[in-house]
Design a protein around this nucleic acid. Sequence first.
DNA 1: GCACTAAAATGAGCCGGATCAATCAAGTGC
DNA 2: GCACTTGATTGATCCGGCTCATTTTAGTGC
Lengths: 234, 234
Amino acid sequence: MGHHCTVDVQLEKLGLVPFFRQLSAEELQKVNEMFRAKHCAAGDVVYYQDEPASYLRVLVHGSVKLIQHTTEGKDILVDMLKPGEYFGSLSVLGDDHYTETAVAQSDSCILVIANREFRDILNSRPAVAVTVLDITSEKLNKAREMTRHFTTMAVEKRIAHILITLCEKFGEESKHGQLLQVPLSRKDIADMAGTSTETASRIMSRFQENGFITSGRQWVAIRDKEGLTAIMGS
Amino acid sequence: MGHHCTVDVQLEKLGLVPFFRQLSAEELQKVNEMFRAKHCAAGDVVYYQDEPASYLRVLVHGSVKLIQHTTEGKDILVDMLKPGEYFGSLSVLGDDHYTETAVAQSDSCILVIANREFRDILNSRPAVAVTVLDITSEKLNKAREMTRHFTTMAVEKRIAHILITLCEKFGEESKHGQLLQVPLSRKDIADMAGTSTETASRIMSRFQENGFITSGRQWVAIRDKEGLTAIMGS
DNA sequence: GCACTAAAATGAGCCGGATCAATCAAGTGC
DNA sequence: GCACTTGATTGATCCGGCTCATTTTAGTGC
């Protein structure tokens, strides 16, 4: 089945979405009515890569990962989303297809809107459009940074970097240190770093020996962020 | 020094920029007055990575490459621009810095606007904002595709892909085949593919032997695009 | 608590591509 | 036309990380 959240919670969460935060209560209400809520269980596929793309989505609860499949059979984990982030398709052009597969990583609640309707929102509310643009250019910068890291840094450094980034986004204090609030396997890490599961595993073991992290099946906690940062510059 | 173009040419070119194409003649005139023209000679640096970023630019004539420098001393060629494309900073936040260095690859004419002013344009003209958003999400998709290629494909395939992409963007018919209308060294190719100059050179030689390309100092022409496409799926 | 399943760890061998080093060739300035 | 500079080529060596194969371990269902 999956997670369920009430209409009230939806409205509240929608108000927290960066590009809707600036809207007045009544405007938010109007926008909210244009969305349709969908609940997903962990592991559910929200949409598949190459499928015709005509919906934009906003994650309200849970976590979603974006994966690109390659002809070689390798997967790339492009992004991991937390509540408040948008995904899916922005474009209104007919022949647009999803460039990645979206999978719910844990039970999630997702708001869906036809991108034609979303366009209407953007066209009538410039401030929203500009904010969406900001977020998108930010993501563009991140994506380019990622390319840079892939091509210049050794796998160990890439993984250190990934852990730090995840820690900033998903970390929450626990007895083990900053526990990442998201299921995270060795394969996930490998797909993010563009390496093999084995290599990811080896490096994670090394990090654990050095006391940088504590980790188990599908979970990771960062103990010593400075240690990881140090790895990156050496 | 560098290239010079008249105010009339500027206005005309500005009208060709995708996100201004929809403006009326008088609006375009108004927008044009907000820009300041700058001329660059081949090799000139337009701005440096990490410099505080407060200007948005539109390339009117020539070509510009965007390069990210890394701590390891390696460079990544992130994008190559042709007239009509924007670059620089979109953000209005104070602590924003350029994420890459922009270098004129040939004599160029560039229109410059303070991004605060550009924001005003966006805020008052939603259609422009939405178009800029479209272009930016397109670039985001491209950037992610690039990441995918870097991590999954062997160097040979990456270079084949890069040549095909460049051919579509810069190729013009000539006696040698599709001649790329942009200076392009082995190092440029290597920086785009995330490999060493030596490896890039070796692969380019192989392509030349196979009759896929013809190439000399700083120039490349594609003879057999299908051949290159075939390389990619094998 | 025990069996079962899927994730994680570990080992050994191999190869693509980086690096270092030297040579070659195409323009450029005089 | 000749020396010079800089891009391009080619060769030899070495190593990080991939692959294949095996073992270990943490959770799950009963």
